[in-house]
Amino acid sequence: MTEAEEILGADGIETLLALELAKHEFDSLHLPNLRLIRHFGVMLFCQQPAITARFYYGNDSLALGRLLLPVRGDVLDLCAGVGTQGLLCALTAQRVVSVEVQAEVAKLYAINSALNGLEEKMELRIGNLLEAVYDERFDRVCCNPPLLPVPHSLPYPPVGDGGEDGLTIIRRVVSHLSTLLTPTGSCQIIGTVVGNEAEAAFQELEDLAEDQELSIQLIVPWREQLEAQSPLVRSLALTISQYGNLPYEVALHELLASYQAMQVRYLYSFLLLAHRASARGEAGLVLTHHYLRGSSFWSV
């Protein structure tokens, strides 16, 4: 138990045991289905990688962690999960309000905020996205949403299902930024969107920028073809197969048929930075793409 006590402290271990998130096994502390990781200077508990994981941490979590700039003032952390991005914001922010739809994350969120000594700054609200923060404004909004393009007819874990084009949650957030942000506030989101070879389907975000009087910068580091041999498509089909108890070949066929019906051939990843136009230039969308320069899924 020496190593566990060194990292967690005696009080932390007792809390984990009391919440039934850990148990003693001989002389060891056993965390069923959980792992403790270091995330850009903070420690957090999350679930072991699995198709049905609800307490999620993945490459997109790392991507947003790299993006998040230090912020002072009040932060809104949407799709908060176990507090991954909220913890980083709380290092410099005055207050972090985290919103998550899954009530089950509350125990781990509380443990993670206390583990880093940030519990006085962090508040978790269980709710459906923006309903939990009605009529409040923030200096920073950050969001790591469900972002993968999954047809409505196919089953997929909610933590990754971004709807047919990948933008289901993102468009909801962007469409409310003008009322969520303070006059000098900013928003950071990561996401994916389908498109064709010439361009990604960003027209709706461009229209929202004009409508909401936002200045949006989109950085597109990566794209991949939506074809049968694509590692991404095969991974999506495998998850659909296992999550929905479908034959893999059926899942793959339905996935590709949906993309063909939508007349899309590529999936693009992007990083979104938004400000109110009155604070940072004219309303509109500026797009920079780097996928022809040897960049990776999230990194330029």
Rank of each mutant, 00 (worst) to 15 (best):
I13M: 04
I13W: 02
E14W: 09
T15D: 08
T15K: 09
L17N: 06
A18L: 12
L19V: 00
E20Y: 02
L21Q: 06
L21V: 02
K23E: 14
K23R: 15
H24D: 13
E25P: 00
F26N: 13
D27I: 08
D27T: 11
D27C: 09
S28N: 14
S28W: 12
S28R: 15
L29M: 09
L29V: 07
L29K: 03
H30S: 15
H30G: 00
H30K: 14
L31C: 10
L31R: 09
L31T: 10
P32H: 08
L34S: 06
L34E: 02
R35F: 09
L36C: 05
L36P: 11
I37R: 05
H39C: 07
H39T: 09
F40N: 14
F40M: 07
G41H: 04
G41F: 01
V42W: 01
V42D: 00
M43T: 09
M43I: 01
L44K: 00
L44T: 03
L44D: 03
L44M: 10
L44I: 03
F45C: 02
F45I: 01
F45R: 03
F45W: 02
C46K: 03
C46R: 02
Q47A: 13
Q47H: 10
Q48I: 12
P49K: 00
A50C: 08
T52A: 14
T52K: 11
A53S: 11
A53V: 11
A53C: 08
A53I: 07
R54K: 13
R54L: 15
R54N: 11
Y57M: 02
Y57N: 04
G58R: 02
G58T: 04
G58F: 01
G58N: 04
D60Y: 03
S61E: 01
S61Q: 04
S61G: 09
S61C: 07
L62C: 12
L62D: 15
